[in-house]
Every structure is written in structure tokens, then in C-alpha cells.
């Protein structure tokens, strides 16, 4: 698989990473090499094989509907870059 610099910019945007345009070609080359490598997977015939998402095909355990958390806003927001009036702040979002 050969990625183009445009592909790189698209992926970078999805991942919210900055790739300066002048680096996008290098990035494309590097990631293409990795993709070429992982394409060795095609050596395996996986027809009719179910995908495995969880080791040992585990199943979900559920909990009771109980409230066991209390307000820790002050503690948690002490970690935040910017808060005001109990809210986390981000630059104005236009809707």
C-alpha cells in the first residue's frame, strides 16, 4: 500500500495531529513501508474465520445499578489546564 501526502493529511486530521505539509511526503514513505510490512497478513487464508476481539472469547460481566461515586470536581479540576465556574474551558465552539 502506498500512501500519498494527501492521505497523510487526511489521516492526521482524523487523529488530530499536525503534519506540516513539507513533512507529509516523508511521513507517507515511512507509513507506507509499515503498511507494506503488515500486508504480510495476506499470506494467511482467513476465509470463514471469525474475527477475535477478546482473548478467550470473553463475555461481558455487568454490575448492579448503584451509585457509588461522589462529587470530586475540585480534585479532578485541579488537573485541568483551564476551568471556570465548574466547567472545563475550550476555545469557543461554533454550532
Amino acid at each position: 500500500m502506498s500512501l500519498t501526502p494527501e492521505d497523510i493529511l487526511k489521516i492526521a486530521h482524523l487523529a488530530r495531529l499536525e503534519v506540516p505539509e513539507e513533512e507529509s511526503s516523508d511521513y507517507a514513505r515511512e507509513l507506507s513501508a509499515i503498511l507494506d510490512f503488515v500486508e504480510q497478513m495476506n499470506e494467511a487464508d482467513t476465509r470463514d474465520i471469525l474475527p477475535l476481539s477478546h482473548p478467550q472469547d470473553a463475555t461481558l460481566r455487568m454490575r448492579e445499578d448503584k451509585i457509588n461515586e461522589s462529587d470530586q470536581r475540585e480534585y479532578y479540576q485541579s488537573l485541568a489546564p483551564e476551568t471556570e465556574g465548574g466547567h472545563y474551558l475550550v476555545p469557543k465552539v461554533i454550532e
Partner: peptide, 19 residues
């Protein structure tokens, strides 16, 4: 009473980020 993946309350109208 509690959230789908955590034990925090689901009440409406509480002070911001206290739940």
C-alpha cells in the same frame, strides 16, 4: 440511577461536573 458504565448519578440539573 447510575450511569451506563460508571457509578456516578444520572440526576438532571446538578452543579456542573459534580456528577
Amino acid at each position: 440511577a447510575s450511569k451506563i458504565f460508571s457509578g456516578a448519578a444520572t440526576d438532571y440539573g446538578s452543579e456542573p461536573n459534580t456528577q
